[in-house]
Design a protein around this nucleic acid. Structure first.
Length: 427
RNA sequence: GGCCCCGUCGUCUAGCGGCCUAGGACUCUGGCUUCUCAAGCCAGCUACGGGGGUUCAAAUCCCCUCGGGGCUACCA
């Protein structure tokens, strides 16, 4: 439920919001299920089955060996009262089992078209356990009818349980014209072609949240797996998703999950964020990852820094390494980067830059750039990469950073210069 | 094993008998731009699983085959 809310997936009726068909928690509906099970029993749509788990298993095994469809063989369908007494005397507790009549169930799936199941392959199924608790098969179907469900969209793994569900509708006396419409969605598979699921740890939505993905990106991407709005459209907002979605456009074939594509979409979504929204998200993220505590001073710097990195990050997680140099207390140059400036030419660049920058009074990125260009490119004839590289490492501690001159402006003159001299002494 | 579902570039897809020399996106490769990294722009690679039909015409319809997946519980 938390996850659905975070994704922005809300419901108009159900737990927490309530509605006219409650209660909405199965645990509060137990008596309802029991009532219906008893009704089915009295209508002879269902019967008590006294077979034990081990007996059933043995018989299933034999069926398998004979290459028959495994399933309940109907042993307890028509027990005589003597037999029932005998079982009871043995202390057996019966389950309630639904009788599957001869024939077939045909229904129209909104995605797959007409689907047919012959009942000889749909064995009698259990509705209530021996302890009186209901099974999913009973509970869903009863809820569908009582809550007046009109459409059932679910994974295709439930496709073959549909005839059982329909059987319960029939027993409840629901006319066929009032059956809910079924649509069985294709799976989303992992890289290895195995089914992905919400309980599969590393692919839980929470994992993506912690990896810095935006809910709207996840929804957009997931919607694109097995569905497309057509007309070569891909980037859609939540609102557009609601407007454009139709079950008929859902594919029937399973899709593979592609992290690269999710990242690309997430990047698009981040770039499309308003400055204010991006600030909120970045702030929240950086506080959570303990890079900042959220002081006014930090937020002021963050606000100025974000515009120059917004187009450079694909996930919120990428903000931290890019802006770390602005906030980390004891500033340190990354060992690998430091190694790259441990040479005379880099030292030369830094020493001269330091001197030139000390003269800069108007500490703006354009002024800094002008001074350094004049000195290093025009004056020393260096290639840009060689000229600015050492300065970047000295100031940001890394070979990869937001634009250098803007970074130096953000850092301020004092801090920038002290970092350069620090680097010089470290060489 | 039985039953069911599915099959277009590496991946997600467009396509619903002629508009297909099969389109878009992600990835990848090359280039442009460039203070690093991105972003942006341009170019390129790469697909209708196979075989039969039906038809003047098939990625599109039918059959078979191969391949992938699901279900087969007193789990949901």
């Amino acid at each position: 439920i938390q996850t659905l809310k975070w994704l922005g997936l809300n419901w108009d009726e159900g737990p927490e919001v309530d509605g006219p068909h409650g209660p909405y928690l199965q645990s509060q509906r137990l008596n309802i299920y029991t009532e219906w099970a008893n009704k089915f029993l009295s209508q002879k749509d269902a019967y008590h089955c006294y077979c034990s788990a081990t007996e059933l298993e043995e018989r299933r095994k034999i069926q398998m060996e004979k290459n028959l469809a495994p399933g309940y063989d109907g042993k307890c369908r028509d027990l005589s009262s003597e037999q029932i007494e005998k079982y009871k005397a043995e202390g057996r507790k019966p389950v309630v089992r639904m009788r599957m009549p001869d024939g077939e169930t045909v229904f129209t799936d909104l995605i797959r078209g007409e689907v047919k199941f012959e009942h000889k392959f749909v064995p009698d199924f259990v509705l209530m356990r021996a302890d009186g608790s209901p099974l999913y098969t009973l509970a869903v179907a009863v809820d569908d009818v009582l809550m007046k469900v009109t459409h059932i969209l679910r994974g295709e793994d439930l496709l073959s349980s549909t005839p059982r569900q329909i059987r319960v509708y029939q027993a409840m006396g629901l006319p066929e014209s009032e059956y809910p419409a079924f649509a069985h969605l294709p799976f989303v598979m992992g890289q290895d072609n195995t089914k992905l699921s919400k309980r599969n740890g590393e692919v839980s939505i929470a994992w993506y949240k912690d990896a810095g993905f935006l809910p709207e990106a996840i929804c957009n991407y997931l919607a694109l797996l097995g569905w497309s709005p057509g007309e070569d459209r891909e980037n859609v907002s939540m609102q557009e998703l609601c407007d454009l979605f139709t079950v008929e456009r859902v594919n029937s074939s399973p899709a593979r999950f592609d992290m690269k594509k999710l990242q690309a979409i997430n990047g698009d979504k981040i770039r499309a964020l308003s400055a204010q929204r991006f600030l909120e998200l970045a702030k929240e993220w950086l506080i959570k990852s303990k890079l900042i505590t959220g002081t006014g001073e930090q937020l002021a710097i963050l606000q100025k820094a974000l515009p120059i990195i917004q187009e450079r990050v694909a996930t919120l997680a990428e903000i931290s390494p890019l802006l770390k140099f602005l906030f980390v207390k004891p500033f340190q140059i990354e060992p690998d980067s430091l190694a790259q400036i441990k040479n005379d030419s880099a030292k030369d660049v830094l020493v001269k830059s330091l001197t030139a920058l000390q003269e800069v009074n108007n500490w703006t990125h354009s002024e800094i750039e002008a001074v350094l260009r004049k000195l290093l490119i025009d004056g020393m004839g260096l290639k840009p990469r060689l000229a600015f590289g050492p300065v970047r490492i000295a100031v940001t501690g890394s070979t990869v950073s937001p634009p250098l001159f803007e970074s130096m402006e953000l850092l301020g003159k004092t801090e920038s210069l002290s970092r350069i001299s620090l680097a010089i002494s470290a060489i």
